[in-house]
């Protein structure tokens, strides 16, 4: 059974590329371009991991992260912060309750390795 990854990123190009890469690596991808959509999806499906960008249009990634980690229903879903913001991560990811982070631009191998590790 393929693992389900919810990718939350407002950058359509990158979203497409990541989806392409991960699907090729055998993951099932759900995606959302903002936190609100992500929450809608989460009501219907529980993914095995959330790959979460921080800078989102309305509700920010870190706020979403904190929200989910407080919610009994979602708190067990591992969250991998996926950001270009070197300022906000790495020192802050743990305080958001996230499991790990990966900086953009990224090495595809590192990404897949981290996902595999967190969804073991």
């Amino acid at each position: 059974m393929n693992k389900k990854i919810l990718v939350v990123d407002d950058e359509p190009d990158l979203l497409e590329l990541v989806t392409f890469r991960l699907e090729n690596s055998g993951f099932r991808i759900l995606y959302a371009r903002d936190a609100e959509t992500a929450l809608e999806i989460l009501k219907k499906e529980i993914p095995d991991l959330i790959l979460l960008d921080l800078l989102l249009p309305k509700l920010q990634g870190d706020d979403l992260c904190r929200m989910l980690k407080k919610d009994k229903k979602y708190k067990k879903i591992p969250i991998l912060i996926f950001t270009a913001s070197i300022v906000r991560v790495p020192s802050n990811f743990a305080s958001m309750g996230a499991e790990d982070y990966i900086l953009k631009p990224f090495e595809a191998d590192d990404l897949i390795e981290k996902i595999n590790y967190l969804t073991k």
């Binding site: 190009d13 990158l14 590329l17 890469r21 300022v87 953009k104």
Partner: peptide, 27 residues
């Protein structure tokens, strides 16, 4: 600096991932 780094890194990520995907033979 924070903004510019973010704004530069985001497209870079796409460029890199696109090239990497091709180089890795994913396509």
């Amino acid at each position: 600096m924070a903004t510019i780094s973010h704004e530069l890194r985001t497209p870079l990520a796409s460029i890199k991932e696109g090239i990497s995907a091709v180089l890795d033979g994913v396509s």
